[in-house]
Design a protein around this nucleic acid. Structure first.
Lengths: 195, 195, 195, 195
DNA sequence: AATGAATGAGTATTCATTCAT
DNA sequence: TATGAATGAATACTCATTCAT
């Protein structure tokens, strides 16, 4: 049964479709959480037929992994961009404070997805490489300005402060945040430049 | 039609059953995560028939909430016990370091459940009271030794360090942890004693 | 474990309990329909423990039958009472008109139960005796005033008019009803009194 | 792991399946009543797998509504066909008598379904439109021959006579029925023809 | 005599995945 | 290449009934 001559088949050849599906999956994860992320919900969000998902992705698990991978990469890029103009430890304090208070890059939606990823990675070793890559990149950014131990401390602080901000009804003030960060930051020895 | 001789599967009257079911639910959450926590899995873990769950708990959601509530209470008690002999800010550094490295009270299982709770609370406002009560109690402990801002910092640090420890293959050493905590801790003004 | 001396056992000896349960069953049937009439709902409506139902009634089916039987008896009594002062065919027209328009005895609740009974009887032969007894009594009333054929007609008319009144958004007016009834009524030959 | 030789239970692609399911649902309602009309029973009657029902119909309620809608439409068509050759009020008496005695169109199965529909509509407002449409069409037929009040009377009479015929062990004779109908029928004023 | 705990069979529904077209 | 129909396994939940106490 061929299409009538002249009739344009509806949305054939759609090379970005797989991409759109991945973004839709992220939307669904953000809004409904991993447990409620189903083929049907993603298909509806992406406005593609159900069969399209299993055509492009062998399983839901694979699609989820691809979505998390993309999300982690974007988070890392935004993170790096956020620190692009940072020059010294003082700048770090300001940058991190802004980060925690959501003034930069990552909004609650992004953080929610990140926590979904963390928890999923806890049980699915296949996702560990995603979280590890993300953690390595975010630490890599901080290590340009502070020593490794400080990096670990600041990194953990960001994690904990953001999580508590999301969950708590009694949030930390911006000044408190800055004070907390400032105590944790100790500048790295300046890289030796050629004499 | 009598039962096969020797087979006597009856186990009527079991007053602690509801309790056992709650603990079984925690086991299942710890091992399989909230999304995979089904009536069937819990029933199997508790070694009770399926119908028993819905008899004692109106819904899976309710059972989950009860389980998380119990877990948070136990965590808080362990937390308080862990700080029972702490006297000053120096002790706090040691106590928190031990906490992060799992030498006290909470093992990975407990932390995994806690993160499941956090994520669940993110989407289920009914669980917020559980997380808030837990957070209030853990902060209350710290505030006996350090000022409020320091409390917030140390609290966030514990959260972030533990999460990164669980997820990372490249863990922070105990000395690093101690150093990181030490920077964050600033003693509270001593309570004025008489005379 | 006997009760402490002086402690009055809670609601022991309650001879009307079976009665109360039957009435509660009728309430539940009226409000929720036969398909949703469960032990639990009835127990709650009667404010008795669940076990009490199966203690007093061997099965739900039996309880339902008892409830329908009582309802039919009450309907018949109300019906007979409604015609107590009727003297001749003209009175019948007024009495039936009032009946159809709900001015007497049977309210929508009662009619709903009656239709539930009809439908249940269609499939449960055990309930046929209940519907037949009810029909015989209601016809018996009419036969005191009109001939058998007229009785059948008026009886059917009541049934149909009431059902359409309940279901229709475009009801028949009282005058129309009276007119319709009047056409159907033909007085019985007066019983011969001793010459 | 290949299927046993000869066993080939596949029956993919079945474009009329939704239709067949609706008819099977009507069979089940007729035979078992609405309360016992389950997915499983309908699936068995239609000889399709269980999942097929929920694929084609979002809920059992929707399937039931679709089935009742189809049944009412068929009833109305049969009703209209039954009166196609009726010319005057006398014909109406004969036609209605035949209707009540099941000599035309609607058999007991159809009537049983109709009463199931009535009762269901009593509690589910979503079904009211179905009963109302059916009632409007059946009255529309009668109004071609008799005045509106007579229509209401005859309509109610049919309803009541059929219901009593179904439920009673002591049925009305055909002659009685004719007599009862005849009293109710009063011809409409003839439509004025030109000249 | 009375009851609340217990349970297995059953209910509607969801959904990842398969596959004929 | 693409998809919508199809399905079986699983899910949460209901409930009549049983029975130890």
């Amino acid at each position: 049964m061929t299409a009538a001559p002249g009739a344009r088949p509806v949305r054939r050849y759609d090379p970005q479709r797989a991409d759109r599906i991945i973004d839709a999956a992220l939307d669904v994860i953000a809004e409904h959480g991993v447990p409620n992320t189903t083929h049907r919900l993603i298909a509806a969000a992406a406005d593609v037929p159900l069969g399209s998902l299993t055509y492009h992705f062998a399983s839901l698990e694979e699609l989820r992994a691809r979505a998390f991978t993309r999300h982690a990469a974007r988070m890392a890029e935004a993170y790096e961009a956020h620190f692009r103009d940072v020059r010294d430890a003082d700048d770090v304090v300001e940058a991190v404070t802004a980060l925690v208070h959501g003034d930069a890059g990552a909004d609650p939606r992004d953080r929610a997805i990140a926590y979904e990823l963390y928890l999923a990675a806890l049980r699915d070793p296949g996702l560990r490489s995603v979280t590890e890559s993300w953690m390595r990149r975010s630490r890599g950014v901080l290590e340009r300005f502070v020593d490794p131990t400080t990096t670990r401390g600041v990194d953990a602080l960001i994690e904990g402060l953001v999580m508590h901000r999301i969950l708590s009804t009694d949030p930390v003030s911006r000044d408190q945040t800055r004070e907390i960060i400032a105590r944790a930051v100790r500048p790295a020895a300046p890289p030796r430049t050629g004499a």
